[in-house]
Design a protein around this nucleic acid. Structure first.
Lengths: 341, 341
DNA sequence: TTGAAAGCGCTAACAT
DNA sequence: ATGTTAGCGCTTTCAA
């Protein structure tokens, strides 16, 4: 090891230390072009010796290529998005592409800012959650000059490519399952809507399907922030007090569903005998609950994988067609809380 | 909006569109230097009209400044790290710095790779979890040429600055509380150690303190992967079958603790009457459990905030002293599962 | 207040 | 297999 340098090392330093031209040093460090084994060794030794770290900024500017994929998601606290991320990382593993994450907190203005920020690094691709964006954001995406994949949702009009599930259909399928099982007095709990378009679409698909069967939501409640598990408890307690004759509770996510389930069991309420339950997402957490909560898997990992594959493929092969739309099918898991009655 | 460009727009395009020199356009876009209100308007209109997004790569190369802070953490699936991240984002909000996240999966080799990758973008600072790094990683950090803050842990020898709690002390404090409450037959459950130094240190602090009081861990079990809640259940079931006379269970994280708690309650076991429990982290999730699990807060958000503040301060003021060490004090929450017996 | 020139550290393209 | 030259798109510095 050498002593801390005042000035960051450059290719030139390695060149001088190894007695090889900058160009050849560059070739060695990128494994590009033919270099004799001897010089390769010399260069690598010199680079390691000095502790040289290449300057990607200069490299990117010169080569007009940046191996970054911008990934823009609403939140990291949700568990859903980390799973999407790991799908993305997985698919990008073999390539030289690297994901860079930006978080919007479900705020369109912040999405705009984050997107602008990321595009100004000229990434090789953009993966962005949702199909709803501000006009400015859509314009930026359209002009980005790189593949764009909108994920998690297919109910809408993508700028370019798109990978996800239909949340309307997911809501519908759940409603159908509930109707078919014979439940009639249904309560709904979820996040406040305007922020979360996918939850809203599920709710729409759900209520419409119920309506067609002549059923109306008997009670509903929406929350914002806080511990989802605790919120699930509270909302369930409140709703059961307000509307005691409910026979089913549909939660817009598994976490509040789990909270509700725990509360109901504690009250000695028979689940699913007296009341049925369902959530949404298929989070791993559920495996540890006293009852297996009915849920619907949102294919989070697969969404991430496929989206990243599209980006990678289009970077590899510019003739790969844009505007690809991939709709994945969420699977319904009835668990132990949605049974025929 | 204009039609999709083949070539990304440059300052030159804005310059031509507005009839102002590139230099002045640059000044407007960065709010730097004096520009007359008239030209400022012209330029901004032109830029927006064209949909110009500045090229940060070129900007960074020219200015030798990059407004990115590299944040390197072991995992996103843990809930712990997203909280640290939000602390970081929060502190960086006012500045022009932006966090960029890299994930190591607790693997030193991957840490090395991620670190190298991030340093090659010449960030304005590095925030990295833990004090244990490979020699190569330490060397890179030492040579990084930017402030480095190691976080989450203070039991060790930081390269530069450091913000965190003492996990040894945390383990000790928990042991003291348990001893003082009168528990004697103690079981431990946690992740497999070598991967997670902080969990290991807590365990060490814990067992040593017990040892001093003449108590030895009566049973222990370690897990790897899977749903933590479910693992907590399984391990607890296995341990209670194997060593039925335990009177306390210490879990290395709240999630497995929650799983254990749920299982015990289901079995009709009296918590904390028959057996006491404690976890670690103070995760929000716990608010929704049937009993408030004893735990110890790791100050995750505060750690992130403080670390980012240090980076920001040192960027603002180069004379800000390096090698700052900040030890935060975790607070013990006895909840309802650690009571005097 | 504005503009012109130089160059950041690399790599593409072309020699040799 | 290796070296040379000319930028990449900005910002710094200096001049007007």
């Amino acid at each position: 090891m050498t002593k801390p340098p005042k000035r960051p090392l450059t290719l030139r330093d390695v060149s001088e230390a190894s007695g090889v031209s900058e160009m050849t040093v560059s070739r060695v460090l990128r494994n590009k072009g033919d270099v004799s084994e001897a010089t390769r060794q010399r260069v690598q030794d010199a680079a390691k010796q000095l502790g040289y770290v290449p300057n990607k900024i200069a490299g990117a500017l010169a080569s007009q290529r940046v191996n970054l994929v911008a990934v823009i998601i609403p939140s990291l606290g949700n568990m859903v998005f980390p799973e999407v991320l790991s799908g993305i990382s997985e698919s990008l593993e073999g390539t030289d592409l690297q994901p860079v994450v930006g978080v919007t907190d479900y705020l369109p203005e912040k999405e705009e800012k984050v997107l602008f920020e990321m595009l100004s690094w000229r990434p090789s691709g953009v993966i962005i959650a949702g199909l709803e964006h501000s006009d400015a954001s859509r314009a930026m995406l359209a002009q980005a000059g790189c593949p764009v994949v909108e994920i998690m949702d297919v109910d809408g009009d993508p700028v370019d490519s798109c990978v996800g599930i239909s949340h309307r259909r997911a809501g519908r399928k759940m409603a159908e399952a509930i109707i078919e099982a014979g439940y009639k007095r249904i309560g709904f709990m979820g996040t406040k809507m305007p922020l979360d378009h996918r939850a809203r679409k599920r709710f729409e698909g759900f209520t419409r399907t119920l309506a067609k069967a002549g059923i109306e939501i008997a009670d509903q409640e929406f929350y914002l922030g806080g511990s989802a598990l605790a919120k699930g408890r509270e909302m369930t307690a409140a709703m059961m007090a307000r509307t005691p004759n409910l026979d089913f509770l549909y939660y817009s996510n598994d976490m509040i569903g789990a909270g509700g389930l725990l509360w109901l069991l504690e009250q000695g309420i028979d689940v699913p005998g007296q009341i049925g339950l369902a959530g949404f997402n298929g989070v791993e957490l559920l495996d540890g609950l006293p009852r297996q909560l009915a849920t619907m898997d949102a294919c989070r990992r697969e969404v991430g994988q496929k989206a990243a594959q599209i980006i990678a493929a289009r970077n590899r092969d510019p003739s790969y067609p844009p505007h690809e739309i991939v709709e994945l099918s969420p699977t319904l898991a009835l668990g132990q809380t949605l049974v025929r009655r």
